[in-house]
Each structure stands twice: as structure tokens, then as C-alpha cells.
Nucleic acid binder design. Structure first.
Lengths: 193, 193
DNA sequence: AAAAACCGTTGACATATATCAACGGTTTTT
DNA sequence: AAAAACCGTTGATATATGTCAACGGTTTTT
């Protein structure tokens, strides 16, 4: 169960974890299983955990006045699910995170993670690498959203993230791209001609 | 000149810098003046410097096939200008960063910054705080772009960032929001009625 | 002082995307 | 096995936003 997490961490740091460090990580991250549709975080709650996805698929979304869901993130294996704003500032989250498939996670509280980072310097490094990648990915997505048409955005997404296309239904992809399912359907139809 | 930077750093860390640390920082960050319209980073170049803005205003933007500029960031005093993707991966940047007003910066190379971070742990902490805030701000912007109409996006921006409204012309704000200047003009007109 | 560039606004019109409703084919729940 | 929920598609229409062109008032450059 924890092997995926350890492998993930080792891939993101310079020199591998010692076995003591690995033991400490295994002892700290707790397994958590979610059934399909089960909430990991619900709007209004403070985000207490960061969760590493070992197996499964999840989504993060807000719900507007009209009850429409807006997908802000999609997660699969080897992704981290949490709401940083809520977790950092201890404010109620504006988002829901739930399981799209039955999912197995490894979770820690923020305090536990900070504690681990003090004891294992490599985790600080890993966090920095992750933040960096995350910042880059967000920048790209933002830039794409501002500059491109829906069609280009879909093409870009489909080429860079084919796993998501296979894993999630079209209406979620559409929402993630900021368009309706009907528009995405028409874009795809047109694209194949 | 460097006081603003030192004050900025001290505001973002737990215990203040020692005078040796301050001296090291002052010795490393070099002043750089840019005249209005002068490039700090030009598309196709690798981003070599991170720059802290002491005085002035800048913008970061891409230019599409049709020659249209898309503003991805606006900067004023106490902001950091750089293209992380290019600086981290050493790839040619897709963006331009230039001075909108005459600007005074303090710049360092990535290597110098990493070196400083090794010698001054507080800077690691500062970077983490900055990354965190940056991630939160990006998340909000992304969420807003996906979920809201242009009108709501403008309202949100205007209430959260009044300094920018005063400092930059409307057509730049419009581009930053991902709409045309004409649309923003009409939104504003309508909003005042 | 004149010329040029810049800026915000407005009108007419074009286009992209959303909305609403309906359908048939799946898959899931009962 | 039947019922319900889910999913993608299509058509008709509405709405938001973009495009193009022009204008007058600034500010900047010559």
C-alpha cells in the first residue's frame, strides 16, 4: 500500500530515503478508503488532510448559485488531493472533493506533514519540487484559458493528459475546461472531420 | 534601495534576519533600472533572473499568432517578476516581461538565489510562504475564470486589487481578465447604472 | 507647435458558447 | 426484470463576447 508513496517520493528527491525515514513515513501516513461518490472534503469544512492517491480517481469542484458544478481539478493515481487555501488558512473550503471511482488514499494532517518535514529534509525538497511543478502547470492552464478558444484548450488538454480523457466522462472534462458538455460534444464532432 | 527587500523578507519569516544575513542579501541582489517599455525578459530567451520590484510597474504577456498580446501577470512594488517555467527548466520563455512604468528592481540569478537559500534558512521559509500564497492566488484566479462571467470576474478583481485598477490602463486589465477592451468598457458602463 | 501615438468609448454586426428540451443507449440501482 | 440514473448527442434558440471601424480627448514624441 505505501510502496507507491515511497516510490513517488524517491522519484522527486535527489538521494533516496533511508530505511528509517521510510519507516517513519509509513507510520505516519494512514490508509483511507473512499467509495465512489464519497466526500473527502465537503464545502464549508476546513480541509484537515492531504491525501496521496494510491488507486482511484477523484474530482474537486465548487457549486454555484444555480447548483451547477465547476470542476477545478481532476486527480488520479499519484496525485495529491487537498485544498491548500483552506488547509493553510484554516478557513472553510469553497470546494468539494469526492471520489469518482472507489479510491484508496494515504492521508496526513497538516501538522503531521510539517512534523515529517522537520525530521526528513528530503520531504522539504520534495515539497519544493511539487510546488514548482504545480506552479508551472497552473500558469500554463491559466495562460491557456485566457488566450485560447475552447477548441484549442480541449486539444491541448487531450494531448497533454490522455489518461484523464479515458478516465473521466466528457461532461466532467467539459466542466474542467470551463465549457458545457454540449459545446464539448460539438467540438469533438467537428475535430474528427 | 535594498531596505524594501529586507522589509519584505522580514515580513514573510518567523524571526528577523541577522545583520550578517542582511549584509549577504544586500551584497547579492543587484539593482537594475528599466525604462518604460524596456524588456526584462523577451520571448525565446531563457529567464535568467528573478527580480524584486522596488518601484515601478511591469507586465508579463504572450503574443499569439495574430499579434494579440495576452496579459498573464501584472506586477507593482513588492512583487517578484520572473518566468518560473523557463527559469526552472532552462527552456526558452513563451512570455515577455517589460516595464510599464520606469522601474527599479533588485535581481538575482537562480544560482545565486539557491546559494543564498543554503546560507540563509529563513529564505527557504520565505520561499515556501510565497509559493503557498502564489498557489492560492492562482487557484482562485483559475476558479474564477472557469466559473464566473466576465462581469463578476472584473468585480472580483476590482475589489481585491484596487491598486492595479488605478495603475494600469483598462485595456491591460481587460486582457488580464481574458476579455477585450470593448467588452470591459461596456461592463463598466453597465455596472455604474 | 505640430504630429503621432495612445486610450476609452460607441455602434453595427459576427461568432462562440450557453441554454433548454428531447432522444436513445448505457450502466447502475432497486 | 424493471426502473432509475447516467451519458453523449442533436436541434432550435438565446446570450455573451469578439471584431471592425470610427470618434474625440489625452498624452507623448518629434
Amino acid at each position: 500500500m505505501h510502496e507507491n508513496l515511497l516510490a513517488y517520493i524517491n522519484q522527486h528527491i535527489a538521494s533516496p530515503l533511508t530505511s528509517e525515514e521510510e519507516a517513519l513515513i509509513v507510520a505516519t501516513f494512514r490508509p483511507k478508503k473512499l467509495r465512489k461518490k464519497q466526500y473527502f472534503l465537503q464545502e464549508g469544512d476546513v480541509c484537515k488532510y492531504a491525501g496521496f492517491i494510491v488507486k482511484g480517481a477523484m474530482r474537486q469542484y465548487s457549486v454555484d448559485d444555480k447548483g451547477v458544478e465547476h470542476i477545478v481539478h481532476l486527480f488520479i493515481e499519484n496525485y495529491w488531493a487537498n485544498d491548500r487555501e483552506s488547509a493553510t488558512m484554516l478557513t472553510p473550503s469553497k470546494y468539494n472533493i469526492d471520489a469518482w471511482e472507489d479510491t484508496e488514499m494515504l492521508i496526513v494532517t497538516r501538522a503531521e506533514m510539517l512534523d515529517l518535514m522537520e525530521k526528513i529534509p528530503a520531504l522539504v525538497q520534495m515539497t519544493r519540487v511539487m510546488d514548482e511543478r504545480n506552479a508551472i502547470a497552473n500558469q500554463r492552464r491559466l495562460s491557456s484559458t485566457i488566450s485560447n478558444t475552447a477548441e484549442k484548450r480541449y486539444e491541448e488538454f487531450a494531448t497533454h493528459h490522455p489518461q484523464f480523457i479515458q478516465r473521466f466522462p466528457q461532461h466532467l472534462i467539459a466542466s474542467f475546461l470551463g465549457i458545457t458538455k454540449e459545446t464539448l460534444s460539438r467540438i469533438r464532432k467537428q475535430g474528427t472531420k
